[in-house]
Design a protein around this nucleic acid. Structure first.
Lengths: 243, 243
DNA sequence: GAGTGGTCTAGACCACCCC
DNA sequence: GGGTGGTCTAGACCACTCG
């Protein structure tokens, strides 16, 4: 009798994928660098090219690698393009996607609150760094944003001058700290603008805002960033494709 | 000189996929029925099994067919499961997904408004059928919903008794009218409850609501249904996965 | 046991990129 | 021209389902 809940067998290409992801996570191939060719990898693992190919195809679907015909396979880089299409879902009424500018209000360290510990699964007393900023689209303040990361993962972040906190954070996290955000979940609600939000966004208190609660995960599926964004949806909307 | 904008070449498996989708759209294989085996299809098109397999894999990703090892490949059926996971994104604060009940308020025909013509790309004067309903979760009214479909696609819908307008409409559209909803886009905004919405949802006028504007497309990517849902997000949230 | 989809292999050829 | 990923084939074997 075998345990019916245990996996009966694991396809080779999944095992290969696991091994490749592990090497990727260990930074053996830094973002943007080329992986060995499919044939070389296949020889290394002593499997056929088709098996490696299937593993890479799965990894490409998860945005872990990029492949270009005639060039090779590359460790994914967190480009602005990717921030825009994978992570930023606000579009203007004219159906244009555009990355917002940021005005950083504060960037400080502290001790994780219960809510932060819960979201990021941290121990009591863990130090965290918090960023507050307002993001603008077409010159209008549209998003009031507040995010938390564990300080240990991003040392020194809290002591940067506010002007030197970059706009596209995930690109920065990757380049500066080797932390790759590859996946996220979002929870959306309608809320009423608080006094602070009203002031930051230039709207009346109580104006309906779209609150986005995001948890961002790294390549090992560990929570890395918790973010709350309050969006003024008078001239923009949150776009989602159901497929 | 070839036109650089024209496709240089089309992979075989894509051509096969196009042919299979066409046969599926023509109702040659009604929802739930079995397609011929991969080997039979391959012989029919005079290609290898691997090529048919690649076409079917792509179709499975688009929820057009379901494949089960040892059983066969089946034309996709619009199950409640699918309504729940692909199309219904509200979850309770306890992180439970559950399909809502519906109380139909009205179901009538009329002439398409400018907004409806625009959303569904209809000609002026086209008859449409509109349904208004309130949807409940855990006994609480949570969604005020209003949707429009072209009458020609769903004849007789407008003259059904209100109690006989089914809860899971996409399942019904498919079973009764042969219209398969396979894809949709949603636009989300925060709005303030109008008098009507406040009454239907049992909230105060001006309460922030999550407005979801959905356009649902059929297998040929033609717009079929336009739906506006106003959700009370005090005890539920809209869930989205970014990958 | 017969039939189905799923995996794996090996090899050929094609489209693309860069030197 | 040589290297890369992308397609296509043919055949073997495995895992699952059903009668």
């Amino acid at each position: 009798m075998t345990d019916p809940a245990s996996p009966r067998y694991a396809p080779l290409y999944q095992q290969i994928k696991t091994l490749l992801v592990r090497r990727l996570a260990s930074n053996e191939w830094p973002p943007g660098s080329a992986l060995p060719s499919e044939i070389a990898l296949a020889q290394g693992y002593n499997v056929s090219q088709g098996t490696v190919r299937k593993a890479l195809t799965a990894m490409e679907k998860e945005h872990l690698v990029e492949r270009r015909q005639g060039r090779g396979t590359f460790a994914a880089r967190h480009s602005q393009q990717r921030s825009l299409f994978q992570f930023f879902h606000l579009m203007s009424d004219a159906n244009e996607r555009q990355l917002p500018d940021s005005r950083v209000i504060s960037c400080r360290s502290g001790t994780a609150t219960a809510a932060e510990r819960n979201a990021l699964t941290l121990e009591a007393g863990t130090p965290v760094t918090r960023i507050r900023r307002v993001r603008q689209l077409d010159g209008r303040p549209v998003i009031s944003e507040s995010l938390t990361v564990p300080t240990t993962l991003f040392p020194g972040l809290e002591s940067r001058p506010l002007e030197q906190v970059p706009n596209t954070l995930y690109e920065f996290f990757e380049a500066e700290y080797g932390v790759m955000i590859v996946h996220a979940t979002e929870r959306l609600r309608a809320t009423a603008a608080t006094t602070t939000e009203a002031e930051l966004l230039g709207v009346d208190i109580g104006t309906p805002l779209l609150a986005i609660d995001r948890l961002a995960l790294n390549i090992e599926n560990r929570p890395v960033e918790w973010r709350e964004s309050c969006c003024h949806t008078a001239h923009h909307y949150y776009f989602n494709e159901l497929d």
